[in-house]
Amino acid sequence: MTASILFVFLAASIALTFAPGPDNLFVVTQGIARGRRAAILTALGMCSGITVHTVAAAAGISALFYSSALAFQVVKFAGAGYLIYLAWQAVRERSSLGLAASLGLSGAALFRRGFVMNVLNPKVALFFLAFLPQFTNREAGNIPLQMAVLGLVFMAQALVIFTGIGFFSGIVGNWILRRPRAGRWFSWLSAAIFASLGVRLALAQR
């Protein structure tokens, strides 16, 4: 791969990462509902999930979601169910006591939320399967290795952008968490957002 190809890939990746979508919304929601720490740890988990999609695309595993409707449906509904579960948890945390408890979530639990949300989205797998090969060069050889490198570049820029989004949304979240009444309203808002993301994923088509 040439430097020019990597530059074009990086520019396209940054534009796609900044574009409004479920991942951005998920990080923002975590930041507003739970504060800066939660948003950043969730963003780290989501970016780690990119490695799974990169390996799957490079190994051709993601093609299974394209060729098998059953595989796509299974992973899709698993991801939708997980988002609905997060919505239910947000409703449970609507009291000030629940908000205080949510601040005590371990770093591993917050990281896992982002990771699972990203991995259980077959649309992301199909995106990587379609996006990465466009920037590979057969003459350079070893296409899977090129895709792995591109996936790492994508993950690096996503890490910077998502943690930045998490940081700034967390500033708002930390302000809200000091005001229990506002926090209760945002717990309901978080639940509504998670539920809508779950329904959107459940209705997604290949």
Rank of each mutant, 00 (worst) to 15 (best):
L132V: 07
Q134K: 14
A78W: 01
L99R: 13
A182I: 15
G104Q: 15
F72R: 14
N118M: 11
Q73D: 12
G170A: 11
V172M: 09
I171M: 12
A191C: 07
A140L: 14
V116A: 11
M117A: 15
W175V: 15
G79E: 05
G60T: 13
G183L: 03
A69M: 08
L129I: 06
T163R: 12
P133T: 09
A130T: 13
I84H: 00
A56Q: 07
G164M: 08
A80K: 03
V55F: 02
T163D: 09
A71E: 06
K123C: 02
M147V: 05
L99Y: 00
A58W: 00
S190K: 07
A101I: 03
A158W: 02
F186I: 15
L70C: 06
F127Y: 09
N118W: 01
R179L: 06
T163C: 14
S102L: 08
A63S: 12
I84M: 09
L83F: 01
V160N: 06
G166V: 13
L97C: 02
S95E: 04
G107F: 00
A109S: 12
Q73A: 12
A101F: 01
Q157L: 13
A57Q: 05
G141I: 12
G141L: 09
L129T: 08
I84C: 08
M155E: 10
W188G: 09
G81C: 05
A101C: 02
V119D: 10
G104P: 02
A71C: 11
M117G: 03
L70I: 07
G166E: 05
S190I: 14
V160F: 06
A125W: 02
P133R: 11
I61R: 08
L70D: 14
R179G: 04
L105V: 01
E93Q: 07
V160H: 04
I165R: 07
S187Q: 12
L145T: 12
I161T: 12
Q146C: 14
G151C: 14
T136M: 11
A140C: 07
F162S: 11
L132Q: 14
V119S: 10
A100D: 03
P122I: 03
I176C: 00
A182R: 01
I61H: 03
L83I: 05
L70V: 11
A90I: 00
L64D: 07
S62P: 02
W188V: 15
S169E: 04
V172S: 01
G173M: 10
A148Q: 09
L105T: 07
S169D: 03
G81I: 04
V172E: 04
W175P: 01
L189M: 13
A148L: 15
N142R: 08
F154K: 05
G141P: 00
F168H: 03
L86H: 01
W88C: 10
F115D: 06
G79S: 11
M147G: 10
L150C: 11
G170Q: 10
L132T: 08
L152V: 15
V55S: 03
L159H: 05
V153G: 07
A57G: 08
Q157N: 12
V55H: 02
